[in-house]
Write a protein that binds this DNA or RNA. Structure first.
Length: 932
RNA sequence: UGGCCCGUAGCUCAGUGGGAGAGCACUACCUUGACACGGUAGGGGUCCGCGGUUCAAUCCCGCGCGGGCCAACCA
């Protein structure tokens, strides 16, 4: 099989993916073979109508790496795909669409109410069907090894059944209740929101200081001892309109300014209502005037205060965004209008002490960015504390581990201060709450099956609750609902608990914590054993990507331009960072070059394997009958050092890559592969092999077998990260085996040639060779010293020169005898001639002293380079060596170092000092040779 | 206010209790039979500051400074 000139991902990515799907490469089994471990990950389901963004790309890449890696290790691997119905987001999109289509009966744009619930849901389902292929298709383009036949959707029948089961059970256990509570109300969407869906945002506003007259229980003014006049309590507020709902004022019990008003009453400005003065340590004496107006119906903290002090709760702000009838003369005004009017009226009445600018946090709807009002409303809640406790314990006891570990702290902090979860939403797109209210007796019936009659009075006049559940309610069940729960399925038995939950830290509370609670409560076991948090992707400046800023880097564009693999490699290599990834396109281009490098190395190997022209004994080479690996192992001792060296380096690489995958340090894996493949294999191994390739015969065969084996191993190592290009190149190799994971062989499926079914490399001590690594290190240093001479003198590679070598001992002599040809080849030397120590080869010469191998290298400068240039080079070397020597000698001259440092370190340092001295002396001689 | 993360070459980032690294960018030379998405050589850093522990600190500890995130009861 011949390869294209260079890496062009468009030519093969789609084809490869189709091949994997056709052959069921990503499918898992409910019946693993005996002894086979199962490994499962459920995908964090993206919004079904969404478009793939960078956050998805990170998540999908990292999960795919784990899945492919475990599959190559022989596990029964399930990566379960699916999508989320995303209540508000999807409903809003459809509403926007129908609004464009026409006008309703009142002449306003068409709303969902004009269509009616049934019609609207039909439209939304169609919308879902139309868009579903978008996001799933994009996952496929990224190369995700998802088990597609098991794909689920949070509103499908099975999941709906699970949702219903959970709701009914929690209701029966008293953990779901309906009640009037303060909640976040979004006027725009006419729905309740959970705390998490409200984003506190800094807004500029004012602090209005209002005057409340203080009276006793008989209505007489209370005299302020400080002034001798009737007390006017000044209270600062950012929301004057809420005063209509005030039912108390509060001061700190220890605040001396206000001790005389304890137990008295305040007259509510404009309204005239008598409010009790309460004391509570919650009040901050430092803020404003140290006095607080309490509006239990429209502020979360005031609500708590109200509960504690048994205050009346008076709703004055309606769900329609207008002041309610309780607001007296202000009834019917919008909140903003009411504020203006009330402030004006207060001012007119002389009750406005002062106004000062003040910025404070206002809750905005996550979805619409509009102000969210705390109001009292009848909603459904999950009583969360009893569920949270075991979920906290599971993490504390280590049953679930977070990585990075510090996220556990965040988790605990939230879980220990958790509020009840408001789960009802006034939407249509979602799981409708399975509660029916009886018109006759008022009973609430909650049931698994749809209800026709009241469970208490049997009346047929029952109405179903119109609301749906928070989207996250169904997401919380995802790890087990997708596996068939509440039925006791084989899938559940095989794959629950899942191995890993991998996601962004921004949904720890929305999703991760809730899955843990629900999993433990309903399945009796944690839903996953590990939680891996990946960083957020930001732009080059570190800013959050957003459409409005126009700084979005579209992963699909990057895939289109550079291929899925370079993008994946980039994201994986940046995954080790703390919380943020600043993505730069440069990096993607760099890894595209890496893919191209692999491509060309493979092309070179093909060329060599097939070569049959002028060189003797160099026809197409077949794989050794026992296989390359066995052959190499058998002949390892007699292989050329360069071959033993790269095999040994491969072992270290395997070890690092494996450790990185296992310990959630995937960037270590990517770096190890990159450095091995490029800096060791391509830069040195291939270059060393060119000589034997040119000569033909046994040497050529040995190097070919080594290179083939190492390259194939590299493809296996990189496959989880870059599945497409690794498979394309691997498949082109002549000696590949269809399948070699033991599990696949027993699985009854026909073996197809794919890396998915290849065993992931495992380190083999038989291929470790420290002596070869040491020897090659020396050889590389010799070659680099000569290259440095050439480079520093700007010597064109075309300029030839002879290298004169004077060896100082038998070892050095043997060394140069063995590697003369390699040095000639790689350092671009015409030839090597033997010389004796100290023997000049011309009037001006470059002399390169070597410590190990002990030798002097000489190059005549006649007609080659400017002598002054070479002097500069040598002086530079001398300076460098002097700094090095001073450093180690400084250490050795300290008594405390010699007394306390480990012996090996001292020995090593002494040896280094000797080597630097030798080198320095050598270069000083060299400088003299240059006439200095 | 509390918690967390980050501060290393011009840029994006690795890294280690014992002489500072990569990629990109930059300079010079090179179309050498895999690769110009390439090769070779090179320049460039008080590893944020100040203390402490240690024979030895960029790394560990403390205190600052700067940037970011999260949770929040300052109306």
């Amino acid at each position: 099989m011949s390869l294209e000139k260079s890496y062009e991902p468009k030519g093969f990515e789609q084809k490869r993916y189709e091949f994997w799907i056709k052959n069921g490469c990503f499918e898992s089994s409910d019946n693993p073979v005996p002894g086979q471990k199962s490994y499962s990950i459920v995908i964090p389901p993206p919004n079904v109508t969404g478009v793939l963004h960078m956050g998805h790309a990170v998540m999908l890449t990292l999960e795919d790496i784990l899945i492919r890696w475990r599959r190559m290790h022989g596990d029964n691997t399930l990566w379960l795909p699916g999508t989320d119905h995303a209540g508000i987001a999807t409903q809003t999109q459809v509403e926007k669409q129908i609004a464009k289509e026409g006008k309703g009966p009142t002449g306003k744009p068409l709303t969902r109410h004009d269509l009616g619930r049934e019609k609207f849901l039909e439209r939304t389902w169609k919308w879902k069907e139309d868009h579903h292929g978008g996001i799933t298709g994009q996952m496929k383009r990224l190369g995700c090894a998802l088990d597609w036949p098991r794909e689920r959707f949070t509103l499908d029948d099975g999941l709906s059944k699970a949702v219903r089961e959970v709701f009914v059970k929690l209701y029966d256990e008293g953990l779901i209740y309906r009640g009037d509570r303060i909640i976040n109300w979004c006027v725009r969407s006419q729905s309740a929101l959970s705390d998490l869906e409200v984003i506190p945002t800094e807004r500029k506003g004012n602090l209005w200081h209002l005057r409340y007259a203080i009276v006793n229980n008989r209505g007489e003014a209370v005299i302020d001892p400080a002034t001798g006049k009737p007390t006017m309590l000044v209270i600062a507020t950012t929301r004057p309109e809420t005063l209509l709902g005030d039912t108390a004022v509060a001061v700190h019990p220890e605040d001396d300014r206000y001790k005389h008003i304890h137990g008295q009453f305040a007259i509510l400005p404009l309204v005239g209502r008598k409010l009790p003065v309460i004391t509570d340590e919650y009040v901050d004496r430092e803020f404003g005037t140290g006095a607080l107006k309490v509006t239990p119906a429209h502020d979360f903290n005031d609500y708590d205060l109200g509960q504690k002090h048994k205050l009346e709760t008076l709703s004055v702000m309606g769900l329609d965004g207008k002041i309610t009838a309780s607001g007296g003369i202000y009834a019917g005004l919008k909140f903003t209008e009411a504020r203006e009017k009330i402030v004006a009226d207060l001012d007119a009445a002389g009750l406005l002490a002062k106004v000062e600018p003040h910025s404070h946090k206002v809750g905005l709807s996550e979805r619409y960015g509009e102000v969210v009002e705390p109001v009292i409303s009848k909603q459904w809640f999950v009583k969360i504390a009893p569920l949270a406790k075991p979920a906290i314990d599971a993490v504390r006891s280590g049953q679930i581990e977070f990585a990075p570990k510090n996220w556990e702290k965040t988790y605990f902090e939230w879980m220990e201060n958790i509020r009840d979860w408001c789960i009802s939403r006034q939407l249509w797109w979602g799981h409708q709450i399975p509660a029916w209210y009886c018109d006759d007796c008022g009973e609430t019936t909650v049931a698994r099956e749809d209800v026709k009659a009241c469970s208490k009075c049997k009346s047929l006049s029952v109405k179903r609750d119109e609301d749906v559940l928070d989207t996250w309610f169904s997401s919380a069940l995802w790890p087990f609902s997708t596996l068939g729960w509440p039925d006791k399925t084989k899938a559940l038995e095989t794959f629950y608990p899942t191995a890993v939950l991998e996601t962004g830290f921004d949904i720890i509370f929305f999703w991760v914590a809730r899955m843990i609670m629900m999993g433990i409560h309903f399945v009796g076991d944690v839903p996953f054993k590990k939680v891996y948090m990946h960083p957020m992707v930001r732009d080059e400046k570190g800013e959050k990507m957003s459409k409005s800023k126009g700084n979005v880097i579209d992963p699909l564009v990057l895939i289109e331009e550079h291929g899925a693999d370079p993008l994946r490699f980039t994201l994986a290599s940046m995954s080790g960072q703390g919380r943020d990834i600043k993505l730069s396109v440069d990096r993607v281009e760099g890894y595209r070059a890496f893919a191209n490098k692999l491509w060309n190395a493979t092309k070179f190997l093909h060329l060599q394997l097939e070569k049959s022209d002028e060189i003797p004994n160099s026809g197409p080479l077949a794989e050794p009958v026992e296989g390359a690996e066995a052959w190499l192992k058998k002949n390892f001792k007699t292989l050329a050092p360069a071959n033993r060296w790269i095999l040994s380096r491969l072992q270290s690489t395997i070890q690092t890559v494996e450790k990185g995958f296992a310990n959630w340090e995937i960037n270590d894996s990517t770096n190890a592969i990159y450095e091995f493949a490029w800096l060791e294999f391509c830069d040195w191994s291939i270059e060393f092999a060119k000589l034997p390739f040119r000569r033909g015969g046994k040497e050529r065969e040995e190097s070919l077998i080594t290179l083939h084996y190492v390259l194939e191993s590299t493809f296996k190592l990189v496959h989880p990260i870059m599945p497409f290009v690794s498979e394309e190149l691997w498949d082109s190799l002549p000696w590949k085996k269809p399948a070699n994971t033991p599990v696949r062989a027993r699985d009854g499926k026909p073996p197809v040639a794919t890396l998915s079914f290849q065993a992931f490399p495992v380190t083999d001590p038989a291929f470790r060779d420290e002596a070869a690594e040491l020897e090659m290190g020396r050889l590389k240093a010799v070659i680099e010293a000569i290259r440095n001479f050439r480079g520093e003198n700007n010597l064109s590679p075309k300029k030839d020169f002879v290298l004169h070598v004077a060896t100082k001992d038998a070892g050095a002599k043997a060394f140069f005898a063995a590697y003369a040809n390699d040095i000639i080849q790689l350092a671009r030397v015409t030839k090597i001639e033997a010389n004796t120590v100290g023997n000049s080869v011309s009037k001006f010469e470059a002399m390169i002293p070597l410590a190990n191998p002990a030798a002097e290298l000489r190059i005549s400068l006649d007609g080659l380079v400017d002598v002054e240039e070479e002097r500069k080079r040598v002086r530079k070397e001398i300076e460098k060596t002097k700094v090095d020597l001073a450093h180690v000698e400084g250490k050795l001259s300290k008594e405390s170092f010699v007394a306390k440092a480990p012996k090996e370190l001292i020995d090593k340092t002494r040896a280094e000092a000797e080597a630097f001295k030798t080198k320095l002396a050598g270069f000083e001689v060299a400088l003299k040779k240059l006439g200095v």
